[in-house]
Simulated assay, not measured.
Amino acid sequence: MKRLIPLVASALLVLTGCGQNDQANSTATSSPTISYTDGMTVTVVSVESANTFTAEIEGLKKQVRLVNLAAPSPNGLALSSDCLVDESKALLAEKLPANSQVTLKFDENQRGKTGYVEAAVYSGDAFINRDMARAGMVATTFSTASDKFYPEISQAQQDAANEGLGLYSRDLKCAIPALIQEQKKAVDDAKTWEVNTGQDASAEDQQKEAERQKIYKDASAFYRELKDQVKSPAQWVGSIVTLDSVSQQLTDLEQTLGDDFYPQNGTSVNQQKKSGVQSTPARPGS
């Protein structure tokens, strides 16, 4: 399955202003400028996150962001986006030690998108953006369908997911694949419960059945939430759930739920059967 990359429209906002006096204008016009050219060499000062480092460029310190990468963040709000924050930063710091020299290359589609110097970063023959994705320590993102470096970086992410590395591990509790696996196991277990749901059901049976239906509802809501993120493959969750191996996990969760899937503001097929309701429910993926 090929990942779909819709065109993402972007606008460049240019801020202009007038100085208060000639001295201010003189200061502004005398500020040094940097000519960013493909293959330029810069010196690493420090690493700030899994996709950002400070570099000395022509005597100035500038923040460089590894193009087409989204890094874990301690303030991440998206599902799993605060996963492996320290580990991913440590890996980039290992690849880009202080005072080392690296080469920057640029994609015109990406210039000025983030406020950072967006670049493909090379240390010797190593393509650092790709290698961070291959280690499973970042998600990929893009600006347009014609991003220069995205195909190679995205393939590295796909490979990491296929091997279950880093953020794509089913054993790492905060990772999306592990969270999907947890929901699937809960549904599998609930389906094995022996519960009397007839008219003579005991209070204990009724409680057990209520717990089982809650598991189905929670898993259904989780499935719907992730499935909705497929529409946004340039964002953190969308970048992960559109990967083949993770998408297959979602399909497995859907199939495990079967007729116990709850659509948005709806009732599962099995619940409808129990209540005698005859209608065609909405099914996942329909």
Rank of each mutant, 00 (worst) to 15 (best):
D228V: 04
A119W: 08
V117S: 06
S275G: 04
C18G: 05
G266K: 01
T251P: 01
L13Q: 04
A133S: 10
D147K: 02
Q183F: 09
L167R: 14
S146V: 15
A186Y: 08
G258P: 00
K217H: 06
Q158H: 07
E94A: 15
D205C: 05
L167V: 00
T242N: 14
A126P: 13
P6R: 13
T41A: 10
V195T: 15
N196W: 06
R224I: 01
T141G: 05
L12W: 01
N109K: 11
P233R: 09
I57L: 13
V117E: 05
V121H: 09
D125S: 13
F127R: 12
L84R: 05
S247P: 02
T256P: 15
S123C: 02
E163K: 11
A139E: 11
V138R: 02
F127Q: 09
R130P: 12
V42T: 06
F149A: 04
S154R: 13
T192P: 00
K274H: 09
V47N: 02
K173E: 15
E194W: 08
Y216D: 03
R3S: 04
S268D: 14
D22V: 05
V237L: 10
S31V: 11
S245Y: 04
E204S: 07
G266R: 05
A133C: 08
I34Q: 08
I180W: 06
A71M: 14
D171Q: 12
V8S: 10
A78Y: 10
R212K: 14
W193I: 14
K191N: 09
D86L: 05
G285S: 07
L69I: 13
G59M: 10
G164T: 10
S10G: 03
E87K: 14
D107H: 12
F106V: 02
N270H: 09
V44S: 03
E182A: 10
I240M: 10
Q110S: 10
L179C: 03
N68F: 07
V121S: 05
P97M: 07
I215A: 13
Q157H: 05
N25R: 08
L104M: 07
C174P: 15
S143D: 04
F53R: 00
A219W: 05
K217Y: 09
L66Q: 03
D171T: 11
G112M: 12
W236H: 02
F222S: 01
K274N: 07
G164H: 06
E56P: 00
D131E: 10
E225D: 11
I176T: 13
V14L: 06
S202P: 06
S46C: 03
K113S: 09
K208T: 04
